[in-house]
Amino acid sequence: MVMSAPGPALPVLSTERLTVRFDGRAVLKDVSIEIPLGRVVSIIGPAGSGKTTLLRSFNRMNELIPGAKTAGTVHFQGVDLYDADIDQAEVRRRIGMVFQKATLFPKSVFDNVAFGLRAKGVEGDLHGLVEEALTVVGLWSGGAEVLDARALDLTAGEQRRLSIARALALKPDCLLLDEPTAALDPAASAKVESIIHALRHECTIVLATSDHTQAGRLSDLTAYLDSGRLMEYGATQELFTNPRNERTESYLTGRLP
């Protein structure tokens, strides 16, 4: 539940000296960060600073890219995620991910949301779980016709919300959101932001965003990444009003060359 109490919270996700290379080129360098339980954490930084790579290292998505090499450790609830015995599929169920592009499956809305549940081997009628997930993102209004609608016929905003519902159906402990409002109009963005705001009670959220005002609106903590290095990390309010790092300040004030 909500961690409203002040003071240091238990880290649910943490990296230590995490370095990720693609074909030898280091995209993340020595990143050590702790994501506290039940908080919303934003990762901001210029394009190519490693935001997505950091996000993807939290649920082992990077290794799907040929040539990716990970050094350092990532812990989830005290368990080394990169241990040889770890079931990757289970990791990705517990730590859900919403990608920058919705990439819905060319199937019905129902099939999109049910995909993860079926892959997990959940038996029986999935309607309850699917409708629950759709309710959270505001796509369920009680009418069965939405379940049969083709996912690709939805508007861009609805598609984004459906991709969030798809991840939520698995009831993850932690949700990774990569540019959740990229390429959406203001109204659709506002809807997605209100969903994220409501979700902070359900799970720990890490979001990568190139819109730092969004980080300001949504997150308890903000991390500033620059050229693969974690430059600054702290309470959002503090980081925005009183950045300790020169680069952070330049980025926030739009003076970064």
Binding site: T103, F105, A119
Partner: peptide, 27 residues
């Protein structure tokens, strides 16, 4: 078949065979 489709399915906890059978082969 774009890699994004594979990632989307992997990201939802699918095994490689599930990704191939349910997404890549139909696509």
């Amino acid at each position: 078949v774009p890699d994004e489709f594979r990632w989307a399915a992997f990201g939802l906890g699918a095994s490689r065979w599930q990704v191939v059978r349910d997404q890549v082969l139909p696509a």
